[in-house]
Design a binder for these strands. Structure first.
Length: 428
RNA sequence: GGAGACGUGGCCGAGAGGCUGAAGGCGCUCCCCUGCUAAGGGAGUAUAGGGUUUGUAGCUCUAUCGAGAGUUCGAAUCUCUCCGUCUCCGCCA
């Protein structure tokens, strides 16, 4: 969420910046509501003050044994007015809150301007796509024939867009996960294990709600057993539980930066993507991801994004997978992000670069919702900045390893850094 | 799953319809005293929002005692729902 004070102070300026990302801020509606808010809230508070002081008067009068009947009658008339004023004030504030909560973050000055994917800017390339003296296969062909990838079984036990992996393939995925976690551990991230199911407050904190509910899996409540009124969801990314670790916290300045890494499955309904990437492991309802999160001092978030992106790159470099680094343009960055880098890995099976990591600086946009703050010295608590990124999407990394390391006979060479995690096996 | 107890500021802990945004203690900050150390004395020490304002300063108002709803002129205190913690029993990887 953006700072309501800043929004108020510079509504048109912010509208201008949001326009860069293709978002039109309804300035007039907000101005009208703000005027109402000011009026109603002020009135409600004045009446509250009035009631409070009179009620105190009644207490004192009663203590001195005076007749309080006339005083009671006086306050009685206040009551209806107060209730009306409170209601009006609350209703205006709820309307503003609803609008504000759907306003995306303001892009960072260094985020390139553009309308969509095609305007993203390539920052650099690393590694050369290999040339093969045989016809390359994609990851499905490489693994299905050997009985390691079974789409039909996944459909049988769940539905489309799930996968069953077996034998060396399942093990390779686990090896990748371990390798990533260990590497980030060396980068100074604390490994965390977190719930895969979260409540609405957590999803609001990181910005998935209220706007993107359709992308989430919501758990059904058991009619008889569940007495609570709490809605729970499967996590779409470990960003949600990990970032929410600092929700409602006031950290000490010297605790920053907080660096955490975690591995979780991610669950996405992929509601808007029917028909896209239906083949193989690219776009699944359930996939594995290693996620890095940094909670940082506001002045450090730009550097932190560069650093964290670099940490994601290290994984690709150690795996010797060719990739390119893209700066997403204003039209393509996510709702909560001020700046985002995507890492795209080379996939020989598709002869193209595909997104394998997304690293973003959210500045204080998430922190405001989360009420994640820190205290510098004796000063008032101020909001932290949050930065996160995939390090990496394990399922897609698996695809990349399979396709980039394939041999003419259909076997897969295991990248050197993964061999210790595969019990020394060099080829599968 | 059954039975009971409980949830108050950074922490501990009083409070049981009005004088309580909250006693007291610990911790922390500043000041005084004191050869050093130790001890002692004094002051301060929640968060959010609104108004005022050039101001994240000051002043002022409002809200907050797990969360929400209710009763009341008035709720930390009474009622209800939910969340959570603890103890005992049962079950369990």
């Amino acid at each position: 969420m953006l700072d309501p004070k800043k929004l108020r102070a510079d509504l048109n300026g912010i509208a201008e910046q949001l326009k860069k990302r293709g978002y039109t801020l309804d300035v007039e509606t907000i101005q009208a509501l703000e005027a109402d808010r000011k009026a109603f809230q002020g009135k409600a508070q004045t009446l509250q003050a009035e009631r409070n002081s009179r009620s105190k008067g009644i207490g004192k009068a009663k203590a001195q044994g005076e007749d309080i009947a006339p005083l009671l009658a006086e306050v009685e008339s206040l009551k209806a007015q107060l209730e009306a004023a409170e209601q009006a004030s609350e209703s205006v504030q709820a309307k503003l809150e609803a609008i504000f909560s759907e306003v995306p973050n303001v892009p960072h000055a260094t985020t390139p301007e553009g309308k969509g994917e095609e305007d993203n800017v390539e920052i650099k390339r690393w590694g050369e796509p290999k040339s093969y003296d045989f016809e390359v296969k994609d990851h499905v062909d490489l693994t299905e024939a050997r009985g390691w990838y079974d789409n039909d079984a996944a459909v049988k036990i769940a539905s489309s867009r799930f996968s069953v992996l077996k034998g060396p393939l399942a093990k390779l995925q686990r090896a990748l996960t371990q390798f990533m976690l260990d590497t980030h551990g060396e980068h100074g991230y604390e490994e965390v294990y977190v719930p895969y199911i979260v409540n609405q407050d957590s999803l609001r904190g990181t910005g998935q709600l209220p706007k993107f509910e359709e992308d989430l899996y919501k758990l059904a409540k058991h009619e008889e057993h569940d007495t609570n009124d709490r809605d729970l969801y499967l996590i779409p990314t470990a960003e949600v539980p990990i970032t929410n670790l600092v929700r409602d916290d006031i950290l000490e300045a010297d605790e920053l930066p907080l660096k955490m890494v975690g591995h979780t499955p991610c669950f996405r309904s992929e509601a808007g993507s029917y028909g896209r990437d239906t083949r193989g492991l690219i776009r699944q309802h359930q996939f594995e991801k290693v996620e890095m999160v940094q909670i940082v001092h506001p002045e450090q978030s730009n550097e932190a994004l560069e650093e964290l992106t670099g940490h994601a790159e290290v994984i690709l470099q150690k795996l010797e997978l060719p990739y390119r680094l893209m700066a997403l343009c204003t039209g393509d960055i996510g709702f909560s992000a001020a700046k985002t880098y995507d890492l795209e890995v080379w996939l020989p099976g598709q002869s193209t670069y595909r997104e394998i990591s997304s690293c973003s600086n959210f500045e204080d946009f998430q922190a405001r919702r989360l009420m994640a703050r820190f205290r510098a010295g004796k000063g008032k608590p101020q909001l932290v900045h949050t930065v996160n990124g995939s390090g990496l999407a394990v399922g897609r990394t698996l695809v990349a390893v399979l396709e980039n390391y394939q041999n003419s006979d259909g076997t897969i060479t295991i990248p050197e850094v993964l061999q210790p995690y595969m019990g020394g096996v060099k080829i599968i």
